[in-house]
């Protein structure tokens, strides 16, 4: 890549009539190279997972890193057979936590963001500032207090233990507020009020559709965050039937000194666990971009 850079000025000297037209083209190399390096940096680990998932236990540590092996079916078989196919149960659990958690979180965020953006009420700025502070508090620090609180009401080791703490997302509310302020014009709301619509109806029928692209973003963020979350379910759950895939794979990897870690099984498990995320991004990304455009037309 470095060999390419000097060749461009040489061309420039040979053709002095069009330096202006060449200048932006030469500049365009740098972003391309930087982005390419960035893409390689991000995709290399994925390529590693892809290659490693096709290797059996012995070739995993001995063969060339990116050389594929022929053990993918065997690894998949081991994964499905492990403890009676519990891996697929973990995948379903993760889908449940991330899907329902993300959906509820998007709804709650939409409602709160809309309220904060469009209504004037006592304590509004205090609530918003507290939420902003909440954005700064990492979720990791809250896991243990949340565990002790949920234990008080006997909800630990249930699906609710992982769902409830994920529903309220300060960042989601913050995003929804910004989006509501920008995408829902006050004039539309006033027109709806003049027509005699109730506040609930205005939110449901007028504001919510306008905010939908923003809420999809919130849903996506929250979905990915829950999908990848480890500490909260690790602390909350003890029944391996309720584990999400992150915690489940961790137990496979960390079985103490006396038991070998199941590397090849875990790697193929990781590979499968990222496929739904990729699929979700590819489908929702299209939807999301289209609606940002239509949103701007409406606004």
């Amino acid at each position: 890549m470095t060999a390419l850079a000097p060749s461009v000025p040489v061309h420039d000297d040979a053709d002095p009539r069009a330096p202006r037209r060449r200048a932006p083209r030469r500049a365009a190399w740098l972003p391309t190279v930087v982005l390419l390096i960035g893409a390689i940096y991000c995709l290399l680990p994925v390529a590693w997972v892809l290659a490693a998932s096709t290797k059996g236990g012995s070739s995993l540590f001995t063969s060339f890193t990116f050389a594929p092996g022929g053990d993918l079916p065997a690894n998949l078989g081991d994964l499905s057979a492990y403890s009676g196919g519990i891996y697929w149960k973990w995948m379903l659990n993760t889908l449940l936590y991330a899907g329902v958690g993300g959906l509820l979180s998007a709804l709650v965020s939409g409602l709160s963001g809309y309220t904060l953006a469009k209504y004037r009420f006592a304590g509004r700025s205090v609530i918003f500032n507290v939420l902003l502070a909440g954005v700064l508090v990492p979720g990791v620090t809250l896991a243990i207090p949340q565990y002790l609180l949920l234990a008080e009401v006997g909800l630990t080791d249930t699906y609710w233990a992982v769902l409830l703490p994920n529903i309220l997302s300060p960042y989601g509310i913050y995003l929804a507020r910004i989006y509501a302020a920008a995408a829902v014009p006050d004039t539309v709301l006033e027109a709806a009020r003049t027509d005699g619509a109730s506040e609930g109806r205005i939110f449901g029928r007028v504001a919510l559709p306008m905010m939908l692209p923003g809420l999809v973003t919130v849903f996506l963020f929250q979905f990915v965050a829950i999908w990848n979350n480890f500490l909260l379910p690790f602390v909350m759950l003890s029944d391996d039937d309720k584990f999400p895939v992150t915690v489940g794979l961790f137990t496979l990897l960390n079985q103490g000194q006396t038991v070998p870690a199941l590397y090849s099984v875990v790697i193929v498990g990781v590979l499968i666990s990222i496929l739904p995320l990729i699929a979700l991004f590819l489908t929702l990304q299209r939807y999301w971009r289209l609606d940002l455009v239509s949103g701007s037309v409406k606004g």
Partner: peptide
């Protein structure tokens, strides 16, 4: 209920016992 091995299970037991379950 399968758990992570060794030291992790101790931490979890301590927390669970504190929470009463």
């Amino acid at each position: 209920s399968k758990q992570a091995g060794g030291g992790d299970i101790v931490t979890k037991l301590l927390t669970a016992a504190k929470a009463g379950n």
